[in-house]
Design a protein around this nucleic acid. Structure first.
Lengths: 240, 240
DNA sequence: GCAGGTATTTTTGCATTCATTTCTCAGACC
DNA sequence: GGTCTGAGAAATGAATGCAAAAATACCTGC
């Protein structure tokens, strides 16, 4: 089934670099606001600076990085206000997705979503896994709306949220509530109720926003103040 | 020493290249689906291939270009189905913008929008100018919603639409109808009616979509002598 | 005359090199 | 003691060079 060239991962070098660095950022490996270590990444991926810098430009266009002319790239700092904007924008898309996924989802979509939904319930005890499956579920649901533009934009916003998630601790109570909301989402999807699905997705988004923003405000202190000093201030107070 | 910067245009070279090439694409200077002439652009902007290629990667991330590994970049071909997706996604944002611009627009916003609205009416006879002012109006309105994420995404979608616009002829009847819709939009904005503004923007978007897609289907009927599979997908018009 | 294959040219992708700018830090000066 | 200055070091940004892949031209054999 596979062609020769198993070791070389699929896609062009550019795509692999973009995906790889994006993953590093999304995993929180480089702190929010910290400078992107160009040389270290070159060594890590075994490439020269030329393709690496191309990937950095692409990620900056995606919004994950901020380019400071002559001063390198930093992981785009997200303050509470910016994150609130992301959630607000996401709500608009959630409603769209709900409206259209309800009518356009294929049987295959439904089957895959049921599987992910079941896996989600089983991952309630492992926040990182829960977060991952949750992201996969919503990505699949976005795809079921059959609009490539929306799916891509949605993925971009979702990435911002996942990035912020790493700065907060996972709240079991919130996970329980989230699961309950997902039950409602699946129920609306099963009977293909557009308005209901849209409303439930919007509500789910708002609830997630509240939870993350609440934790975020704590973890980040006063968002509007500490823009530059992000690197120094501790973020160790996570697990409570 | 605020020695005036030596007439080098503002922004970094990267930004200027991205903006410059984007403008070239949006103006339709490079045909839809045509290969991006790397060498020619290098000569035109007086730079080497390194920064130019970085700009190309950024524009590909924006969705304006498609990168074909080892085969160069082409202006991302937009077929009728893809364009319909853009309009669909845009509708979701239009509703958001209407909902929030109605309540968040500042007096300064309203003043600027009134000016643009007046200019628009005066440009009814010059399609290109009309298109330009129209874009500025909607961009400003998007900004009035006070959500940077939405404004950026909206601008990206708007760019796709403007690109398609170059492939169609401008219809005076459509411009008249568009102006009438804009009157309604301004009326809703003046009294700050969120639901009404959202609905009017959505309707305006749909009407524009119908007009452009109708012309697009004609203009692109036989796009470019047997290009890939653009013409085969039968789902041309009939949008909502 | 034409299909198929091969050599040449062009283009693409990446590495390397070079010029500038910024950062670091030691030392002079107030 | 603190601050400013400036030389050295490190980084960033862009140009050039080089290997590989594609596109084109050519050329042979039928």
């Amino acid at each position: 089934m596979t062609l020769a060239a198993p070791r070389a991962e699929p896609g062009s070098l550019h795509e692999r670099l973009v995906a790889g660095i994006r993953d590093i950022i999304l995993r929180g490996e480089i702190a929010d606001g910290a400078k992107v270590p160009e040389a270290a990444l070159c060594a890590r991926f075994g490439v020269s600076r030329t393709p690496l810098r191309e990937a950095l430009k692409a990620l900056a266009t995606e919004g994950l990085l901020t380019l400071r002319p002559n001063r390198g790239a930093v992981v785009a700092p997200l303050d509470a206000a910016g994150l609130a904007e992301v959630f607000e924008a996401k709500e608009a898309l959630e409603r769209f997705i709900g409206l259209h996924a309800a009518t356009r989802a294929t049987a295959e979509d439904l089957r895959a979503l049921e599987v992910l939904h079941a896996e989600l319930a089983g991952a309630a005890g492992t926040p990182d896994l829960y977060s991952e499956i949750n992201a996969a579920f919503h990505h699949r649901l976005a795809g079921a709306a059959r609009n490539g533009q929306v799916q891509q934009i949605y993925a971009s916003l979702q990435a911002q949220v996942r990035r912020a998630r790493h700065a907060v601790n996972h709240d079991p109570a919130r996970i329980a509530a989230s699961l309950a909301e997902h039950e409602g989402i699946m129920a609306a999807l099963r009977i293909r109720a557009p308005l209901d699905l849209a409303e439930r997705l919007a509500t789910h988004n708002t609830a997630t926003a509240r939870a993350i923003l609440a934790h975020f405000a704590v973890g980040q202190g006063q968002p509007t103040l500490g823009r530059v000093a992000v690197g120094s201030a501790g973020r160790g107070e996570g697990a409570g």
